[in-house]
Design a protein around this nucleic acid. Sequence first.
DNA 1: CAGTGAGCGAGCTTCCGCTTGACTT
Length: 807
Amino acid sequence: MKNLVIVESPSKAKTIQKYLGGEFEVTSCMGHIRDLAGNDKAIDIANNFRPNYEVSEDKKKLVTDLKKRAKQADIVWLASDEDREGEAIAWHLVEALELSEAKTKRIVFHEITKPAIVKAVQNPRGIDKNLVDAQQARRVLDRLVGYGLSPVLWRKVQAKLSAGRVQSVAVRLVVEREREIQAFSATSQFKIVATFDVDGKVVTAEHPKRFHTEEGARAFLDSCIGAQYSIVNLETKPSTKRASPPFTTSTLQQEASRKLGYTLVRTMRLAQDLYEQGLITYMRTDSQNLSELAIEAAKQEIVSSFGSQYSSPRNYTTKVASAQEAHEAIRPTDFARRKAVESDAHAKLYDLIYKRTMASQMSDAKLERTIAAISISSLPDTLTATGEVIVFDGFLRVYSESRSDDDQDDEETSKMLPPLRVGQDLVFQSMSAKERFERPPARYTEASLVKALEELGIGRPSTYAPTIQNIQARNYVDKPEREGRKRDIRELVLQHDAVSRRVHQETSGAEKNKLAPTDIGMIVTDFLVKHFDNIMDYNFTANVEKQFDEIAQGMVRWTEMIRAFYGPFEAELRRTSETAERQSGERLLGVDPASGKNVYVRLARYGPIAQIGEADDEVKRQKGLTGTLKIETITLEEALELFKFPRTIGLFEEHPMDAKLGRFGPYIEHNKAFYSLPKEDNPYTIDGTRGVEVILARRQKIEENTIKTFPEDDNVKILKGRWGPFIKVGKQNVRIPKDTDAASLTLEECLQLALQQAPQKPVKAAAAENTTAKKTAVKKTAVKKTAVKKTAAKKVAKKVVKKATKK
DNA sequence: CAGTGAGCGAGCTTCCGCTTGACTT
C-alpha cells in the first residue's frame, strides 16, 4: 500500500475511499488525537507558555495503529478539515506519528464530491504552521481562563463549580434576560377590530391607533353607534418573499426545535445517523455554501417536479463573522431521495433538511398585498382591512420558515379579501375593543440561546449542543415549568347599536422548556462580571478571534498574544483570590413576626435556603426553597409560608397525613410512605379529603403496575415501567432479557439476573460516598481514578440527556 | 428519593473543540 489518507470522520473516510479507489487507503483519526495534559504541567508559563501535549487516553490504541500504517505507506495524506482545528489535527498527527516532511502531504477540500477530492490530491501543500499557532493560542487561552477562573469560584462560591470563555457568557445571557423579564411591567392597550359582511364573506378591519384607556376605547365605540362604513381607497402593492439559505448547524437546531420540538441533543443525534447512512452532508458546519454538483442536482429535481419557472439556482455567502466554512451547508446527498426511513423522527428531520435545501434553490414567491381604507360616517378616522394573495408560490410550495421565538407579532391577520371597489358601502356586523398586554422579552430556548451565541461568535457548531447541555448539567440554568397566571382581559363590543362590556380571563406566562437561571447561576455570573468583566464581556471572544486571525496571518507570535493577555489576567486572579468576599447571595428579607428574628435567604451547601435566625444562633430554622422561588426574587411572605410545613392535613388509617415540600416537589408523608402531589394540587391549601384521594390513587397505580410479587421475599417485585416490565430488587432496577415472559420468572431467576446486573460498587462507592472514606480510595492507582472520573462524568451527561429527551 | 444545610480540613473539582461509541434509564 502506497498512499494513506487520514480524514477526521470515519463516514467521510468511507465516501472518499469510493472516489479515490484502490491506490489509496482512506482512514480516520476521529478528531483531535492529542490535547494539553490534564495536570498542572499542561502549560509551562515560565518557559514561554510551552504547551505539554499528550495523546488522549481514548486515542492511544488508534494512534499506535495509525503509526504502524503510516510507516508502511510511501505517502501520508493529511486530509483533516481546512480550518484552525483541522490544521492543528494535521500537525498533531505529524508529531504523534513522527511523519517526515518528505512523505507527508496536506490536502484540503470543502465538500465531499469527486471533483473536489481529485482536485485536492492534485494540489497538496505543507502544514500551515501559522494556522496551527492560532489554534494553540485558542487552546492555551481557553485552558488558562477555565482553569484560572474555576478555582476562584471553588474558594469564593462553592466547590466543583466551573467557568469558561464560552459557558460563562452563555449563562450570563440567560441571567440578564431573566432580569429584563423581572423588570418588565406589562402595559395594556385596546385594539379596535371591526367585522363587515361582504356578500356573505367576513372582512375584518382594524384601527391603526391603539387606545391606552378603557374610557378612550369606549368613547370611540360610542361615537361609531349607527355609523355608515364605505371604502374610500384601495391600494395593491406587489411584494416578494425569498427562501432562507440552506441549513447550518445552528439554523437546523433552531428549526428542528421550533417545528419538531426536538432538543439540540436529539437533533444532532438524528442528524449524525442520517450522515452516517450517507443521506446528508456533514451536520456540524457553519457554512451556507452548496457545491456546484448539489446546485445542479437540486435544479434538475425542481424542474422535473415543479417546472422550470420554480428553479432559481443560487449560492449563499455566510454572514456570520466567525464562520470558518470547512464544509458545505447541511443538505441531502441525493435529491432524488425523498424520504429517510429509519424512524419517524429521522424521517421528519430529513424532510426538513430536504425541503429547506430545495427551497433555497427555488424562485421567490410573488405576493400581492391589498389595503382597503374604510371611512366611518360619524368620525374622521379610517379603518384598514389588509389582505394578501399569493400570485406565485415559488419556494413556498415546499417550505415556509417558522417564526422566531421573540417575534412579538400577533396571529397572522392578512388573508384574502373578497373583490372590493372604491365607494362600496359595507354591511356592519360588529366592532370590538379588546385589551392586549405587551409581552415581556421571551426566555431563551436551547435553540434561541445557540442563535444568540452564534451571533456573538461564541462557540462552534460542534460545541453548541454540548455547551447548552453543560450549563444545565452544572445547574447554572434549568427549565422550570411555569403554570402561568390568570389575568383579566377587558373587551368592549359594539353590536346592534349598543356597547357591551365583558371581562374574560386569559392565562399568561405559562412555560415549559424555557431556560432560566438558577440561584447558583446568578450568583456565579454576578461574581464573574464584577471581577472579570473583560472575559465576561460579550465581545471578548470576538476580540480574541481577531488576534487569532493575526496569528494565522503570521503577523503576531502566538506566545506574544498569550503573554499580553495573561499578565493582567493573572493579576486579576490574584487580587480576586485575596480580596473578594465569599458569595452566598444572602439577602435579609425582614423580620419574622412570630419570633421577632431576622429572615434570610442564601445559598447553602445543598442549595438555596430560607432561614429564621442568625447563622450562629443555636436554634435557627431552615427550609429549602422550592418550585420557582429564587433567592433574588422571593418575598418575606413567601419565605414565611415555607415554615408552615409540615402541615398536618388530616388522619387516615389512624396515621396523620403531613403535607411537605421536598427536593422533588410537594408530597404527603403518611405512615412512612411518600406520595407525590400531582401538579394540580397546591401543598399550601390541600385538605385531608383530597389527601386521601391522592394516597388511594397512588396505591391503585402501584397495584396496576405490579406484575408479580413473591410472598417469600417482599424485596423482589416484577413491575411495569416506562420501557416495559422490569424487576425491582431492593433499590436496584433489573432489566429483563428480550423474549422472556416477565410474569413467568421465578424468584431464583430474578435474583440471578439482579446479581448479573449488579453495579460494580466498590470503586464507585469509595469515590462517591462520604469524604472520610476517600483517604483510602485516593491511594489507588491513577488509572483507576480516571476510570472513576469518567464514569461519573458520563453519568451526569446521561442524566441530562435523559431529562432533555423525556417528553 | 423524601429532610439536611457542619467539620481541627486531605485531596478533589475545572476549560474548549474535534470525533464516535456504549449505554439504555
